[in-house]
Nucleic acid binder design. Sequence first.
DNA 1: AATCCTTGCCTAAAGCCTTTAGGAAGTTCC
DNA 2: GGAACTTCCTAAAGGCTTTAGGCAAGGATT
Lengths: 190, 190
Amino acid sequence: MVRAGLTTDRLVRAGAELADEVGFDQVTASALARRFDVKVASLYSHLRNSEDLKTRIALLALEELADRAAEALAGRSGKDALGAFANVYRDYARAHPGRYAAARHPLAPETAAASAGVRIAQLTRAILRGYDLSEPDQTHAVRLLGSVFHGYVSLETAGGFSHSAPDSQESWTRILDALDSLLRNWPDHP
Amino acid sequence: MVRAGLTTDRLVRAGAELADEVGFDQVTASALARRFDVKVASLYSHLRNSEDLKTRIALLALEELADRAAEALAGRSGKDALGAFANVYRDYARAHPGRYAAARHPLAPETAAASAGVRIAQLTRAILRGYDLSEPDQTHAVRLLGSVFHGYVSLETAGGFSHSAPDSQESWTRILDALDSLLRNWPDHP
DNA sequence: AATCCTTGCCTAAAGCCTTTAGGAAGTTCC
DNA sequence: GGAACTTCCTAAAGGCTTTAGGCAAGGATT
């Protein structure tokens, strides 16, 4: 009997690849076992259950996203930082749609609190240091940026902008311009 | 044998309720059959398959959303219209999380083109009539609004804003202010 | 080298979901 | 009342998840 050399880590990595190939919600223990040419039951020594697998893929994706964002932000500020961060998001989602979907997988509160998601939130807030916003406007702006980035990427990968002019890249650029402008001229509370 | 009186319509409606109760991706033919106290196979005279059910629930949700948006927009313009439309979106998602998730279910291009989704897009564009934007900025703005609304609602229902101050309602209001301001001062192309 | 022990992967089995095929009991309408 | 249609049923095959229990590979110990 030749051992396949399964480990939780290898399974999660392969699961992430599988997600990018066939979609996050098509990631099943069965499909993963097939990929390792192993019986399904064998996976259950390394994974608690199917949900555990999905959660781990989600955590991996969040790590990758946070790493890329951190690298992109290094040495940048203002609009430069805004654009770099936004592009990391969008590029990641386009290159790794399954992982991106995984990153949106609902996590238990404690899991989320210990995930790279908080790093991403911190990085988003760091972008705003280049703009002159005081609390609590900074928080509102963080939420707005999160909404736009996630919303745009989500609609784009769902094919929302693909069959009409102008093309998506154009809108993306102009929307980043608009956000920069908005952050520089954040309206006072009436 | 007492007949249950199944019809495609009743099944879809019940499926939508089920979605709101247990989540859109927990909507299965089995669960639906149980709810009607009927054998699963019986549903297949009314639904092509499981995907068909989900698609129909998605179409129902889009209709409802479009109807509410149309009603909310009647007689309003400018920021008033913007806020009304945005609140329809958010309120619908909070009152009917399963249906809202359904509305985001990927549709085949022809199906999407024949859905109430296009009505929603038209209504979004109508909001912009109150602002002075020329093509193609109008399209960019439509995409921005779609992204913000969907993104915010999606992050909010995932619990993203629930465990930190200020509360979500506050951010929502201020974000709508900010969007109104942005649309009134849309930046020229550099 | 022989033994022991841990670990990795297997077989078996139960439970739930989807989907198709074919049959019997209501319903409609002449 | 009976023909024709519709609705719902039983039966069955196939896929995914999860648990329980078993054998053998590989490393550690003597």
